[in-house]
Amino acid sequence: MKSIFFIILNLTIFNIGFAQNGKLISKYIIDIISTSVWNRVSENNILKPDYIHLEKLDFFSITYQSDSLIVGGIVVEPKEKGVHPVVIFNRGGNRDFAPLNLSTIINYTSKLAEQGYVIIGSNYREKDEFGGKELNDVLNLTETVKEIEKADANCIGMFGWSRGGIMTYLSLKESDKIKTAIVGNGVTDLFQLIKDRPKMETAVLAECIPNYYQNKEVELRKRSAIFWPQKLNKHSSLLIISGKNDKRANQDSTTKFADKLSYLNYDFEYQEFITDHFFSNKRKELDYLVISWFNKRLKNAD
């Protein structure tokens, strides 16, 4: 009898813990002036013309619960009153390489936030599996936004860059809460990635993915959207953006993936630009495209 009691108790504690997934633990405003980013976006202590829009935004550092972990992230909110659609931003990189920070969130999402969007992004858990269990850290943000006063938790989009593209494709596969998404220079085929960039296998994938060499075929397929385009949420939509001079994500693989989506009549668009992985010479075009897409497919969607 006592053993049955403890089994029930443990199951109750387990369920309560996971019922808290996404719970906002802390939220602190970031004073941009006191950060190193200020020197880049300002001159003579005044925002440069390209960054004057930052005056309309508030930036916050957050922590939230994901599974049994506390994970860090960033939120950007328009200062304008009201409730705004949400865009979850998925960073690139892995572990401590290219973390989500103030500079990244400003570069990729501040122009979008100015147009009336709440942006939220995760830095993923410390044990990064490159598309494994830390996917929960992304999906649980759909619960976190319910605690953000200015966020419309029923109107969520997603924007992933580079490795963040993998997280976005996986999210569209595992969740029905993402109304539309954008992937910029994302990887669709990890088998092709390790052919093009062998060091990505030895220095990243083999180190991040549990039991990598024993389960290589299975684990790479799990993370490669080119093998399961039919599993993407059919009620969502997708914009794929690709730089023709990108040396990090294979464009041929992206084109093949787009062809598969076309065959499935998936609701998507594919656009190419003559630029590099970071869209270095196409930032204004990128901002315009991102804003236009989310305005049409998220904010003003029927």
Rank of each mutant, 00 (worst) to 15 (best):
K199H: 11
E174Q: 14
Q192W: 06
M167I: 09
S175Q: 03
E201P: 10
L172G: 07
K179A: 08
S175P: 06
K179W: 02
G186T: 11
F191W: 12
L190G: 08
T168S: 14
Q192D: 14
Q192R: 15
G164A: 03
S171Y: 09
R163Q: 09
Q192S: 13
D176T: 15
E201A: 05
K173L: 03
I194L: 03
L172E: 06
R197H: 07
I182E: 00
P198A: 04
N185D: 12
K173R: 15
K195W: 08
K179L: 09
K179Q: 11
L193D: 05
S175K: 03
P198F: 00
R197I: 13
G186W: 08
D196W: 00
V187Q: 14
Q192L: 12
L193R: 14
S171F: 12
T202F: 02
I166M: 11
E174I: 01
L190T: 05
T180K: 00
I182G: 05
T180A: 04
E201T: 01
E201S: 06
D196A: 07
I182V: 15
V183T: 10
K199C: 01
A181V: 02
G165F: 05
W161N: 12
S171W: 09
G184N: 09
I194Q: 11
S171L: 13
K195R: 14
S175R: 03
Y169A: 15
D196N: 13
T188H: 02
W161R: 11
G164D: 00
A181Y: 00
D189H: 10
T168P: 13
K199E: 02
K199R: 07
